[in-house]
Nucleic acid binder design. Structure first.
Length: 803
RNA sequence: GCGGAUAUGGCGGAACUGGCAGACGCGCUGGACUUAGAAUCCAGUCCGAGAGGGUGCAGGUUCGAUUCCUGUUAUCCGCACCA
């Protein structure tokens, strides 16, 4: 055995051996475990130490499961459609396929450096024809089920990407990808009816072992609210305006109404006097970008000249049009209760509209309001609800109104349907054909995939047309139904399409008959542990849940949630900022692997901080784990031939180590696992030094425990200890808790809550006996004091309160 | 504006259900070994000479609070006129 820890040699050696003979083999006699990383986009700049973090974490979990006797699916692949490759193509006129392949080769090389147990036979790539065939197949099924539909509407448009965006991609009015301000553009687009699944997407969050934060973000995004729809007749008209409100209890306080500028009645109920102003206002609203509409805090609006009739008391409510009411939420029309809604209050003040209070705080008198009162209280001025609290009335009002035929109980969601088409080249073609006779026809399964054609110009247009639209030979086709001339749909799918189901494909990646066989899905899916960044909290994770539920409904899979457990690893920052090429603060793992070895870097990635928290990268910290591994090496070298019978001390040290590593690993607090290794290795070394040797099983336990974290050194040491088979076949050490029982304990002694002395006592002593010893030890400090109280927490602490 | 999270030495961070604050590591200081350095090893390292003080700040509950409660400040994240 080498006296020095030659990591380069060791790592090279075992990587080659594992390549020949993988430690993780399929074996149906074992239970399954599916541990998945969010697959990367193969970017040109490669991986940095931040990417490693999640991959190391998932690999530690996977290897741990292997040692515990599971067959583990731990696959890797490429989410390779997307804009960077396409933009690169525009700049250099290189086909995206070529640049993508080059990037994949580089990132794959880097991934090998991690020595994760990825099964490369199961590698997938969303841009493979055999893969996107099934992405299209799923779309075809959605189309048949009426979940894919076409609609013309004002959409989020990124002027830089020259492409529409889904709502999820345009939060804060900014393009999720490039950060440009999003504008509105009226376009005909393909939509997916994700709203049909709103209720299930919301309710099923309960059964997921996911971070609360992510569940909260999804449930906020779905945004369910309870309320009522109430009908207001328009005076001197046959029109009836339905409003949606969550506060039907305040109906008597409704002093005006507001329609969104896009509401269909606007034209008809605007009187001649206000016509011109209204046209101008609605035109302005239609051209306003979503950013402006959001940031313009000042309320604007125009009176229609018409009045709505309050169904409860017949009071007249002037009807206004204002852009603070959104067309696509609720009914696009609201009743306004300025006394109890901040926005309505502001609007009423600005346009001098009446304010009627219907709720006053418990025990207070009605007085003039300087702001809207939105809290609970007693209902007043409301014959139907008087005497109730607002809380009560809010709950009862929908039913009461329904009984009177004035409205109905309703729920609403903020979730909108998913804008699914993109005006770009490098994505899955939408498998539809437009036929002048048959209308929109889905491409039959036996003609899938609809392949991307070669183009000469990848450049997107400003008109909202895909570059594909310029290729006549591709666009012109025959109708699958009638055989007549027809045109292909030229939009492509968003990047999320391929990633919404890829976790299913890993179970059976080469299947040409189905997206995966029933048997393979049954064997592996759903994913037991999903590791990735928080940035997909609503986007990818919501879409993947939606796809899974759909595939469940059409009988493809028999579960309806894809990811049982989710873990979001924190980002790694450098100089207080996210690593990026443009900031020049990227730390590459390649040099660190060369200098310290893969095992050291793996362990250090886990040591930088709690895995779910963002951490600052500091190169010098890796010295600590490197020194630690050298210490382990030296320990094994020094004591492997000094085997002796187990002693009380060695048994305690060994089992305590197993117990601590095991429980910390189970809690996924990997930084404390690493510190635990350091702490308990030191204890083993102390015992070995004191005894002049140590039993072999203690050394072996350490080596096996280390294996998921630092596989190469562990495997090498395992063989040095005389084993012929892999450390990953050794079985996970079990803690014998009977060995943790001690007969002497140290009790800290406090006076008035401050520790003054420590005494060592037999663990079997009674309270009185311990107290007597304590008083003896504290005698000089207790002199002249009166003891007020004595507290003894058995085995933990003793406190004496004195005056 | 609303919602959520976080705050502990020079630094990263520990502390399980209220029970010895600062584990483990980095860095630093001193020493050993060396012609010298690197590496390694040993000792020390919250502040304070000491009594004592100390987990963002101000209170509270408790024998005892980093942990629970109230208020407050700062930072980060999510949503953003959703009626």
């Amino acid at each position: 055995m080498n006296s020095r820890y030659e990591f380069t040699e060791i790592e090279k050696k075992w990587r080659a051996i594992w390549e020949e003979n993988p430690i993780n083999k399929e074996d149906d006699s074992k239970p399954k475990y599916y541990c998945l990383d969010m697959f990367p986009y193969p970017s040109g700049s490669g991986l940095h130490v931040g990417h490693w973090r999640g991959y190391v974490l998932s690999d530690v979990i996977s290897r741990h499961k292997v040692i515990q006797g599971y067959q583990v699916l731990h696959p890797m692949g490429w989410d390779a459609f997307g804009l960077p490759a396409e933009n690169y193509a525009i700049k250099t006129n290189t086909h995206p396929e070529i640049s993508t392949a080059a990037n994949i080769a580089n990132v794959k090389r880097q991934l090998h450096e991690i020595s994760a147990i990825y099964d490369w036979d199961k590698e997938i790539n969303t841009t493979d024809k055999n893969y996107y065939k099934w992405t299209q197949w799923i779309f075809a099924r959605m189309f048949e089920k009426g979940l894919a539909y076409e609609k013309e509407m004002p959409l989020n448009w990124c002027p830089s990407c020259k492409c529409v965006l889904a709502n999820e991609e345009a939060t804060n009015g900014v393009c999720e990808r490039c950060g440009s301000q999003v504008t509105k553009k009226n376009l005909r687009q393909w939509m997916l009816k994700i709203t049909a699944y709103a209720e299930r997407l919301l309710n099923d969050l309960d059964k997921l072992d996911w971070p609360e934060k992510v569940k909260k973000m999804q449930s906020d995004w779905i945004g369910k609210s309870y309320g009522a729809e109430i009908e207001f007749k328009v005076k001197d008209s046959d029109k009836v305006i339905t409003v949606y409100t969550t506060r039907p209890d305040t109906l008597y306080g409704a002093t005006f109404m507001v329609l969104s500028p896009e509401h269909p009645f606007v034209k008809e109920i605007t009187t001649d006097e206000y016509k011109e102003a209204m046209e101008e206002y609605c035109y302005q609203a239609s051209t306003k970008s979503s950013v402006d509409r959001m940031t313009d805090k000042e309320k604007t609006g125009v009176f229609t000249g018409s009045y709505g009739i309050n169904p409860l008391n017949g009071a007249l409510a002037p009807i206004w049009v204002a852009d603070y009411v959104l067309a696509d939420y609720g009914t696009g029309a609201i009743m306004c209760v300025p006394a109890h809604d901040d926005r309505d209050f502001e609007f009423a003040k600005k346009f001098n509209l009446p304010i009627i209070q219907v709720i006053i705080p418990e025990g207070e008198e009605e007085k003039e309001l300087t702001e809207a009162y939105t809290g609970d209280g007693v209902i007043i001025n409301s014959p139907l609800f008087n005497g109730m609290t607002a809380f009560e009335a809010k709950a009862k009002a929908p039913m009461l109104l329904e009984e009177k035929g004035l409205g109905k109980k309703t729920v609403n969601y903020k979730l909108r349907d998913w804008v699914f088409s993109r005006q770009r080249y490098w994505g899955e073609p939408i498998p539809l054909v437009h036929c002048p006779h048959c209308g929109t026809v889905v491409v039959p399964d036996d003609q899938l995939p609809v392949e991307l054609p070669e183009v000469e110009n990848y450049k997107p247009t400003d008109t909202g047309e895909s570059p594909l639209a310029a290729i006549d030979s591709w666009v012109n086709t025959t109708c699958p139904k009638c055989g007549g001339p027809a045109k292909r749909e030229t939009n492509t799918m968003p990047q999320w399409a391929g990633s919404s189901w890829y976790f299913l494909r890993y179970t059976d990646p080469h299947n040409n008959e189905a997206l995966a066989s029933k048997e393979a899905l049954k064997k592996w899916a759903p994913v037991d542990m999903y590791v990735g960044g928080i940035e997909h909290a609503v986007l990818h994770l919501l879409y993947a849940r939606f796809y899974t539920k759909f595939l469940h409904d059409i009988g493809v899979v028999d579960f309806d949630e894809p990811f049982t457990k989710l873990f979001n690893q924190g980002m790694i920052n450098k100089d207080g900022a996210k690593m990026s090429k443009s900031k020049g603060n990227v730390v590459s793992p390649d040099e660190l692997v060369e200098k310290y070895g893969c095992d050291s870097l793996r362990m250090y990635e886990l040591f930088v901080g709690p895995p779910e928290v963002d951490s600052e990268w500091d190169d010098s910290g890796i010295d600590g784990v490197f020194r630690y591994l050298n210490k382990v090496w030296k320990f094994v070298e020094s004591y492997k031939d000094k085997d002796m019978a187990p002693t009380k001390d060695s048994e305690f040290a060994k089992n305590k180590m197993i117990y601590e590593i095991d429980s910390r690993l189970a809690a996924l607090t990997m930084n404390t696992v690493v510190s635990g290794f350091m702490e308990y290795t030191n204890k083993l070394i102390d015992v070995a030094k004191a005894q002049g040797g140590i039993d072999r099983s203690a050394i072996e336990a350490l080596v096996v425990l280390l294996a998921p974290f630092t596989p190469h050194i562990a495997e090498e040491l395992w063989h040095e200890l005389g084993h012929e088979t892999s450390v990953f076949e050794a079985g996970w050490p079990k803690c014998d808790e009977s060995k943790l029982v001690v007969d002497e304990i140290v009790i800290p002694l406090q006076i008035n809550g401050k520790v003054r002395e420590n005494i060592t006592v037999s663990a079997s002593l009674s309270k009185d006996e311990v107290m007597a010893k304590a008083k003896e030890a504290l005698a000089s400090r207790l002199e002249g004091k009166t003891i007020v109280k004595e507290i003894y927490v058995p085995g933990k602490i003793l406190n004496i309160v004195v005056k």
